[in-house]
Write a protein that binds this DNA or RNA. Structure first.
Lengths: 108, 108
DNA sequence: ACACTTAGTTACATAAAGTAAGTTATTTAT
DNA sequence: ATAAATAACTTACTTTATGTAACTAAGTGT
């Protein structure tokens, strides 16, 4: 009731995007549908958190989960239209990174 | 030595941007230089974390800290050129948010 | 001396993320 | 038939990050 918020939509967008790993997951899925274990090993996230993030992203309509009954089962995650609409965001971060980051040294 | 990274610059950019509060702090500073207590109350971050974030952002050259010896002392934080270069990123998030988020319901 | 203001910091509590082993279901190997 | 393998998770437990609230330092005003 006293939650003053400077820009509600922007802030709820950040609630999603500003979580650890979300950016990389979306970046990775922009390459196309991928399975759990691929994402896990490519971006180096733990299975526990990847599972959690994918559920969050599915719930917010950014990611779609599809089951293929092959053997062993294949489950693929891909971006929805809403998710693909994030491409300009990712691209703008990339452009900034190319212009201003020096690959090596950084915060951490 | 085994840290496979899909895009080093992009990932180090995310190391900074993808931290909680960083997006909002930059959004807020795009309005102009501001003091600690203003940022703290406007975005609703705790002093402990704000202090930590501002130091990180200063270290990565995104934010500049300036001391004015008035009384009581006034300290202003503002964006450097590198920081202002993030405006397109913030704008693209805003555009996405306007097109795809519905102000209210969202991931918690 | 005492209170007030800004800009922090410190100590402690809670929440989020990392690690590694376990689960379920199905298939292939022995 | 039993054992091992694989994918996609989940569970239990540890470590790290964030939140809360009280406290410090320096300068002014009363």
């Amino acid at each position: 009731m006293s939650d003053k918020t400077i820009c509600p939509r922007f802030e709820s967008a950040l609630d999603i995007l500003n979580k650890r790993w979300t950016g990389l997951i979306i970046f990775q899925l922009l390459e196309g549908a991928q399975r759990f274990s691929t994402i896990e090993s490519v971006i180096g996230i733990s299975g526990r958190v990847l599972s959690e993030r994918l559920k969050d992203l599915e719930k917010s309509g950014i990611v779609k989960r599809e089951v293929y009954n092959e053997t062993p089962v294949r489950i693929e995650y891909s971006l929805t239209e809403k998710g693909r609409a994030l491409e300009p965001v990712i691209k703008s971060i990339q452009q900034w990174a190319e212009g201003w980051m020096d690959g090596e040294s950084s915060a951490k």
